[in-house]
């Protein structure tokens, strides 16, 4: 579905993504793990069009999407969430969700004046949909709260809710569990599984919580220093020597060699 070929992203002399290649199968929930600074988020940002790559290619269903701006990717059904939850802080949670779908009737100047009924109908439908999503995420009670004032975990749920307002094909979740308590994390996990099964969303998940990864993801891809180290089930990854080295470092061995 998504194919990344030999992708490079350099910031000056720093190679954040250094020749990563990977493939995401349709209908899968792929986990992306790796130590801090491995280039996972940068890879996300390049795929999602926030950053343009130094070199390399990204294709979606065979179509070249390298360097397309985020809103065009959105129209192609590629969505992402942020490591630190983003929200329109001055709008309510419901309004946040209602903002998501593109090309709404109320966007044209003409309709603003002469298409009041069409806008009203559409708004009603959107409102119902937003309420449904909030219900699904178990945060109905927050519908009229300003999104800037709900907790960090609830913002994460809201981010997930955003992807449910449209028919997404593939969703990139950046550390969806960071700073979220167990119960809420389970809710998020349930939602991801249900979306995957019922609506056929493909997910790519960056996460440090191995239990969460183990429960949801197959396959798992491990990155380190801007490169893809290994791909496989979580157990395979855990057993991979290179991966262990990337996480724990080679210091131990070196120390033994020196004899200190």
């Amino acid at each position: 579905m998504i194919k990344v070929e030999n992708l490079h992203k350099h910031f000056g002399g720093f190679h954040a993504v250094d020749g990563a290649s990977l493939e995401i199968a349709p209908g899968s929930i792929t986990g992306l793990i790796g130590p801090n600074g491995a280039g996972k988020t940068t890879l996300f940002n390049v795929i999602a069009g926030v950053l343009s790559p130094t070199s390399g290619r990204v294709t979606m269903d065979g179509e070249d999407i390298t360097g397309l701006p985020p809103h065009e990717l959105f129209h192609k059904g590629l969505l992402r969430t942020f490591q630190i939850a983003h929200e329109f802080s001055s709008m309510t949670c419901r309004e946040n969700l209602m903002m998501v779908p593109a090309n709404q009737a109320g966007e044209t100047l003409w309709n603003t004046w002469f298409g009041r009924k069409r806008i009203a109908d559409e708004e009603r439908a959107l409102r119902a949909k937003a309420d449904e999503v909030l219900e699904f995420l178990t945060i109905s009670h927050l519908a009229d709260h300003k999104a800037g004032q709900v907790s960090g975990g609830q913002k994460k749920l809201l981010e997930l809710g955003r992807t449910m307002m449209v028919d997404a094909k593939i969703v990139f979740l950046d550390e969806v569990g960071a700073g979220v308590n167990r119960t809420l994390l389970n809710t998020i996990g349930d939602a991801i599984l249900r979306l995957n099964k019922e609506r056929g969303y493909t997910f790519v998940v960056i996460e440090h919580d191995m239990d969460f990864i183990g429960r949801l993801c197959d396959p798992v891809i491990c990155m380190a220093e801007g490169k893809v180290l290994a791909q496989g089930t979580l157990d395979q990854i855990k057993a991979n020597e290179q991966v262990i080295e990337a996480y724990l470092g080679t210091g131990l061995k070196n120390k033994e060699a020196v004899g200190a």
Binding site: A48, V50, P69, P70, H71, F74, H75, L79, R80, F82, H86, E87, F88, S89, S90, M91, E95, M99, V100, P101, A102, N103, Q104, A105, G106, E107, T108, L109, T112, I119, R162, V166
Partner: peptide
Amino acid sequence: FLNKTRTGKSMRAYSDNEDLALLSGINP
């Protein structure tokens, strides 16, 4: 306009959080 119309809301959203607005089907 800013509070009631969709375009106005898009403008507020864009002003509030540009990164997110770009990921919300708002045409910049």
